[in-house]
């Protein structure tokens, strides 16, 4: 998290300050989906935020003092939000997830 002033001196705009914002592509997909559905009015961002706080607090209560991965909790909060609004059921999601997990290696999208 240190700042490389040499880089900045070269005129690079401080977009991410040399740090990746997402560890893996799926994290940016989930972030994009959550923002998009909120912008489309399926839920208020504040309601999603409340779900996220609940997920983080539950995790912290269960694992005091330990670190966590942020985006898995973000994904859980999103599925909570979608399920509570009847947009996407958890069983439907799990079935698709299992089907995807059992695809043969080298599958084509």
């Amino acid at each position: 998290m240190s700042i490389d002033h040499e880089l900045l001196g070269g005129g690079a705009p401080p977009l991410v300050n040399g740090e990746l914002l997402f560890d893996e592509p799926w994290q940016s997909r989930v972030f994009g989906i959550a923002r998009l559905l909120s912008e489309q009015g399926l839920y208020d961002w504040d309601d999603f935020r409340d779900s996220l706080i609940k997920r983080i607090q539950a995790w912290e209560n269960a694992n005091p003092g330990a670190g966590y991965h942020y985006y898995p909790l973000f994904l859980d909060a999103l599925t909570d939000t979608l399920e509570s609004r009847g947009i996407l059921g958890s069983e439907e999601l799990l079935a698709t997830q299992l089907a995807f997990a059992n695809r043969p290696a080298g599958h084509d999208h």
Partner: peptide, 20 residues
Amino acid sequence: SPQAIRAEALEALLIEKGLL
């Protein structure tokens, strides 16, 4: 990873439902 597959399944279902 399980989360990556879960995220992929979520996006596929939302596309199927015409939500995005």
